[in-house]
Design a binder for these strands. Structure first.
Lengths: 282, 282
DNA sequence: GTGCGGCGATACCTGCCGGGTATCGGTTCC
DNA sequence: GGAACCGATACCCGGCAGGTATCGCCGCAC
């Protein structure tokens, strides 16, 4: 199975429409139809049910969609990591660490300091991204190592090491009545009138339906909270970044958040190993 | 990057010889040379150092060898799992579980019984293989789930659930002096005169150098021990399978062996989930 | 030192296959 | 019933994968 065929199939399976898929792939529709047919013939498996009005995935097709995405990620990772390895030889970057924008600044700073002090440490580029993007960056080779937050992120398929566990706080406008409390419960913050929890973008960049503002980063989020249009439940460590017009109150029964350092399992890179070693010594 | 190019590169990188690699791939040498050159050009990276007498991997080349193998496994897994999914629709196999030949028979039997009792259970094929093969079978889609043994097997890249932890015993010929002891230490068995630990095949089927017989399965192993030509340190549960002419003595300070059930991380198959659920309830 | 043998690179040809355009056939709406 | 949509089919073309023949380079043997 060639990667081109996989790319074609994934495009069709995602669009469920040969014309749009072909457009997305930058080819015309007939070769795409033919390629999918050929893939089905070679596999001996029907992947799609076509009528002239709709395309749907068969059971086997949805398996190939899932597995094919993983395989394409792996191929892309091989490409990127090879290119990066060649650059590394000429001295250039080093490691790329990805973490959620605005999360665990302090931990990250300590980690980078500790690693920089190691013998043989290389330059570390820090990449900040929205939630749910890290996993993909790590999987397709754009990043070497990530700081993930359980239970929100999935560590499936990565090697991990736990670094730090903390409670969560609710972030509110400074004058809000609840800010006088020493602590609250999830039930208290679930029912805050007029302060819905915001909606974060999903993997594909779209938003779920429902109440709550659409936010893309913590700056937007904090601004909305300060405006009295939202509230948020975040790990305690966010306190260090709070603006003066915001306040945080511990949420006793919110699930604790564990920060883990994660890396692709077959990464035998000395640099990644050194960074992980530094992390576990924190 | 096409999978064909990756296959070609991996072959050359493993053989370090264009002629042999071409032979292995079933093509002639010139197209292979050209394909590798083209791959290097497209990546913009030198992968191999060639002289007319030898071929060696560059730093980037060894990265691509490692990553490329993983990517090819992922593609192969996509292929196999898709085919299997199509068969499953017609009722056929179900799950393939792989475990080391001769390990944890009892646990396996209990697991299969427990799963068979679940509603919606499908047929489970059990695949027995030598050590160090399971990982590959699970990675390239020939198996859906494996019973691995820590700390011997690597669970890198898989989701796992711990099932059972046990001590280790040394297996000796029935009449051996040590068999009168209640327990021994690793130091005692490391220095057994004339009873070297056997050598198991590595991933590529070859054996490391050194003393000790070459064995491929437990039947061979037990026969060698009975003949007074070897000894072995194995998990306690092997006792159930011992022949009458063998004896086992606990090794107090040997590292405990943990049996885990492992599956590929993005496997969202209901059947795998059911099997894992049954396993955790044991 | 010279010739031979091993090995990767190059030159050149050929057939297949990926990609394009034009068109068909079936389905679902007005 | 016709028009619009959509996937399949027919057919053509160019590029590239694969083959054979050969070159150029190096190491080694005598």
């Amino acid at each position: 199975m060639e990667t081109r065929e996989l790319q074609y199939f994934v495009a069709v399976a995602e669009e469920l429409h040969f014309g749009r898929a072909a457009q997305r792939l930058g080819i015309s529709q007939p070769p795409l139809s033919r390629a999918i047919r050929q893939l089905e013939r070679r596999l001996g498996v029907e992947l799609l049910e076509r009528t002239s009005r709709s395309v749907t995935l068969t059971e086997a097709g949805s398996v190939l969609l899932r597995e094919g995405r993983a395989a394409l990620d792996a191929v892309e990772a091989a490409d990127r990591r090879t290119r990066r390895a060649a650059l590394a030889a000429t001295g250039h970057p080093g490691l790329v660490l990805v973490t959620k924008a605005g999360a665990s600044d302090e931990l990250l700073a300590k980690l980078l300091d500790a690693y920089a002090a190691e013998p043989g440490a290389v330059a570390v580029d820090v990449l900040l991204c929205g939630p749910a993007e890290q996993e993909r960056l790590l999987r397709d080779g754009r990043a070497d190592v990530a700081l993930l937050h359980l239970p929100f992120d999935s560590t499936a398929g990565f090697d991990t090491e736990e670094l730090y566990t903390e409670g969560q706080v609710v972030v509110l406008p400074a004058g809000h009545p609840l800010t006088s409390r020493r602590h609250v419960l999830t039930a208290d913050v679930a029912a805050l009138p007029g302060l819905p929890l915001p909606r974060w973008p999903r993997h594909d960049g779209t938003y779920a339906d429902g109440p709550g503002a659409q936010v893309r980063d913590t700056a937007q989020l904090f601004q909305l909270i300060a405006l009295g249009r939202a509230s948020a439940v975040l790990p305690e460590s966010c306190r260090a970044q709070l603006r003066g017009d915001l306040a945080a109150v511990p949420v006793l029964d919110a699930p604790p958040v564990t920060t883990v350092i994660a890396w692709p399992p077959h990464s035998r890179s000395l640099a990644v190993a050194g960074l992980v070693r530094a992390a576990t010594r924190l």
